[in-house]
Amino acid sequence: MISLSVNGEQRDLDVDPQMPLLWAIRENLAMTGTKFGCGIAQCGACTVLLNGKAIRSCVISVATAEGGEVTTIEGLADLVPGDGLHPLQEAWIEKQVPQCGYCQSGQLMSAAALLDSNPNPDDAAIDAAMSGNVCRCGMYSRIRSAVKLAAAQTGSVVQTFDPAVTTDLEGADHG
């Protein structure tokens, strides 16, 4: 039995420890928002957060994730306070990003990890963080602008409610 936390909930998995996390999430936990695209960490469709870092769940075994905190697309909105969507999800809708939508769970999780480490990324930082995620519908410029929109909105929310953090963010803005 392998224990890990998925979207804040403790889950015990009775699976082959070498099984990639992707299949445990999709088949054993029946959470299908995380997608299979290539199986060799080349497309990013399977991206989830493991302890806050974006990983390709198609090549990370369940054993590797043991004891860790996994966040999938189904848990993305819960990373922010309130009942609403994550600012990235709001921005994705605002910019009408998805077409077929299949890669978008992975795109959003990669973007979430990016904003977590770099709240105000420039084009080069966005390109670097997001180029592991393939979108066959080619919505890259919309993804880029949605990431910026979410970054801007996250900044304003923080400024409104938490002056202490605002100072840090401003530092990051100019630094």
Partner: peptide, 21 residues
């Protein structure tokens, strides 16, 4: 108009063929 199918495509709830249960 905002696309009708987009909200389900940002929260993982859109069901693709591969997601059939």
């Amino acid at each position: 108009r905002p696309r009708l199918d987009i909200p389900a495509k940002v929260d993982g709830s859109a069901v693709f063929g591969i997601d059939a249960q």
